[in-house]
Each structure stands twice: as structure tokens, then as C-alpha cells.
């Protein structure tokens, strides 16, 4: 690894930390800009009760002080404060509860989408302009145009309502099949198209022709030369894929009643649980930023040809 690469990596890490810091700042100040604080609900509380509550949550202090306490707690103790609406629970515990389920779905989705996307893309590129290629392209074009809530609802109609093969409730392992499929379709289609176009590009390169001319067998060319080189763009998609899975899981968990972090987030928005909204936003944003960082660095490290900025 050259010093230039090291410098690039350090710069990217610094940028990622800055981004997370900015997300925390935006989230904090934007949430505190909402008029009529968190305790102006349907039930009118007496003034003394509100004052007591505000003192308990530290909301009576000046905004700048609250901000620095909040920032310090996150950095030093990974503590996002208590939930405002779920009595006696800390935000980080609520997040972690949902995160267990969501991480399971997310990882399986990412694995299935990447694996099937690469296979489909490679097949389409090898059989370029054949019927198989056309079919794969039409299907992936259609899936890219379908929002995840529509895919999820349609799958639910077919498999839960009409055929009743799967339960419509995502609390069991069986119930996670449809959410995973729903989430995987879009990234799978995207990766398929990505792999296909980069594979087509690689297959027309001179070194492939050289290998052919030397009499290397077809499968050896594909697995030994073409596939490895055409997978590079897929690495850059890993970060955006996670971002998609995070936002998609909000919808999918809502549709299939999966007790995950996305559903928790929507619930906290409906309940106006400000600390929980802030905590979840920061947590998910940090995850996406870190994933983007990893996929960026991986890309530069794996392919030394890429010029560093």
C-alpha cells in the first residue's frame, strides 16, 4: 500500500467522521426546532408537571449545553438518552432490540441479492443478445421501477392472501421469507445490470482476446479472468445497497409486521418520541456512512489502477 493510498484512506475516514458529526448536529437542532416540545400531547399536563419532566430530561437547560451533553454521551458512552414515550427504556436498548431482527434480514438480503445478481449478470453478459439475456434485462428493468412497498404488498396478496403459503406476520422465521424477497429484488436487479455491463466491457478487452487466442477454455476465461475484473463496480454498490435496505426495511417491516428497527422508527415518528427518532436516525445514518466508507476503501485497495483524487 502506498503512502498515497494511506492518505486517501485517512482522508475518507475523516470525511466519514465529519459526516456523522453533521448528522448528529442536524438531527439535534432540527428536532429541537419543532414547536411545542415533546410534552404537548393530547393530554394537557399541568405547568408544574411539564417543568418537572423537563428538569428530569434536562430540557430546561440552554440548548447549547443540551447539545454538548448529548454529543458527549454518544461519543463516550454510546448513550442516546432515555425514550420519552416508552417509560423506563433507554433509546439504545430499543434500537438494539429491533436491530437484531433487522440485521438478520438485512444480511440475508444483502447476501442473496449480491450472489444472485452476480450470477444473473454474468449469465446475461455471456449469452449477450440471446433470449436469456433479453428475459433477464426485461425482468430487472421492471423490478428497478417497482417501489419496495408495492413489491411487498403484491407478494403479500399472492403468497399470503391467495395461496396462503407464508404467514403474513414477520415474527417467526418463516414469516421472514417474504420480507427478504421484497428487499432483495431491487438490489438484485441493480447488481445484475451492473455486473452485466461491466462484464461486457471486460469481455471485449484485449487480454481476454489474448487468452482466447492462446486456447484457454471458455470457463477458465470467465472464472479466471473476466468475472474477477467485472466485479469491481459491485463493490462500490455495497454502500448504497445498505442505504436502500435500511430505508426499504421501514416499509417492509411495516407491511409484514416484522418487529425490527424500521418499524420502530415509523412508530417513534407516529408517537412523536423525539429522543427515539433522533437516536434511530443517528444510528442508521452512522451505519450507512461507515458502510460507504468501507466499500470506498475496499474499491481503491482491490483495484490499484484507480486513480486517487
Amino acid at each position: 500500500m502506498t503512502s498515497k493510498t494511506m492518505l486517501y484512506i485517512l482522508k475518507r475516514i475523516g470525511m466519514a467522521l465529519l459526516t456523522i458529526f453533521i448528522v448528529i448536529t442536524i438531527t439535534f437542532f432540527v428536532m429541537h426546532a419543532v414547536p411545542g416540545g415533546p410534552f404537548t400531547g393530547e393530554k394537557a399536563l399541568s405547568e408544574s408537571a411539564v417543568a418537572a419532566l423537563e428538569a428530569k430530561y434536562g430540557l430546561d437547560k440552554p440548548l447549547a449545553e443540551q447539545y454538548f451533553t448529548y454529543l458527549k454521551d454518544i461519543v463516550t458512552e454510546f448513550d442516546f438518552g432515555p425514550s420519552l414515550k416508552m417509560r423506563g427504556r433507554m433509546v439504545i436498548d430499543v434500537i438494539m432490540d429491533g436491530f437484531k431482527t433487522s440485521a438478520k434480514i438485512g444480511l440475508i438480503t444483502a447476501f442473496i441479492a449480491t450472489a444472485s445478481g452476480i450470477v444473473l449478470g454474468a449469465v446475461a453478459a455471456i449469452k449477450h443478445n440471446s433470449v436469456i439475456d433479453r428475459i433477464i434485462m426485461v425482468i430487472t428493468t421492471a423490478f428497478v421501477a417497482m417501489p419496495s412497498f408495492i413489491v411487498g404488498s403484491l407478494l403479500m396478496i399472492v403468497f399470503c392472501v391467495t395461496l396462503s403459503v407464508f404467514p403474513a406476520n414477520g415474527t417467526t422465521n418463516e414469516g421472514l421469507v417474504l420480507p427478504v424477497i421484497t428487499l432483495a429484488l431491487y438490489p438484485m436487479s441493480y447488481i445484475t445490470r451492473l455486473t452485466r455491463s461491466s462484464m461486457l466491457d471486460v469481455l471485449s478487452q484485449d487480454y481476454i482476446r489474448t487468452a482466447r487466442a492462446k486456447g484457454v477454455s471458455g470457463s477458465k476465461i470467465i472464472f479466471g479472468h473476466a468475472l474477477k475484473n467485472s466485479l469491481l463496480p459491485v463493490i462500490t454498490y455495497l454502500g448504497p445497497m445498505l442505504a436502500f435496505i435500511v430505508s426499504g426495511s421501514m416499509v417492509v417491516e411495516q407491511i409484514f409486521a416484522v418487529p425490527g428497527i424500521g418499524r420502530q422508527f415509523i412508530q417513534s415518528i407516529i408517537n412523536r418520541d423525539y429522543t427515539l427518532i433522533m437516536g434511530t436516525t443517528i444510528f442508521l445514518a452512522a451505519m450507512i456512512v461507515i458502510m460507504n466508507l468501507i466499500s470506498d476503501i475496499l474499491y481503491k485497495v482491490v483495484d490499484p489502477r484507480i486513480e486517487l483524487e
Partner: peptide, 20 residues
């Protein structure tokens, strides 16, 4: 910086707040 912000989360956050 804006590019590296997770857009969907920020959109949700801002629309929650702007709505009110």
C-alpha cells in the same frame, strides 16, 4: 457532505419537522 448524508433518513427527519 450532502452527498454522503443518507438521503432517505434526512428526508424523513426533515419532513417530520417541516410538517409541524
Amino acid at each position: 457532505i450532502i452527498y454522503s448524508l443518507p438521503d432517505m433518513l434526512v428526508i424523513i427527519l426533515l419532513s417530520v419537522v417541516l410538517k409541524q
